[in-house]
């Protein structure tokens, strides 16, 4: 799995951090997403997929495979 984030679309909601704190964080200054792990391990895949699904800015892209 490869994760890509689009900072321009990110609204800083932090939903992704709530779901997968090992993969996503937020910048202190403006809350925009910080990708901690672009190729997360399998045990995190479900959480990352859910984070992409609930992201209100549709800013998280998950490439499977």
């Amino acid at each position: 799995m490869k994760v890509v984030v689009d900072e321009d679309s990110c609204c800083g909601a932090g939903q992704c951090v709530l779901l997968a704190p090992e993969v996503f964080d937020q910048r202190d200054e403006d809350g925009i997403v910080v990708l901690l792990d672009s190729e997360p391990g399998e045990e995190r895949h479900a959480a990352v997929r859910e984070a992409a699904a609930v992201c209100p800015g549709a800013a998280i892209e998950v490439e499977e495979g």
Binding site: G12, V17, Q26, D28, D30, G31
Partner: peptide, 14 residues
Amino acid sequence: LGWNMAKQARLLRQ
């Protein structure tokens, strides 16, 4: 509520 403090607001939520 966060006013230009998104991350801190999320941490407070938690």
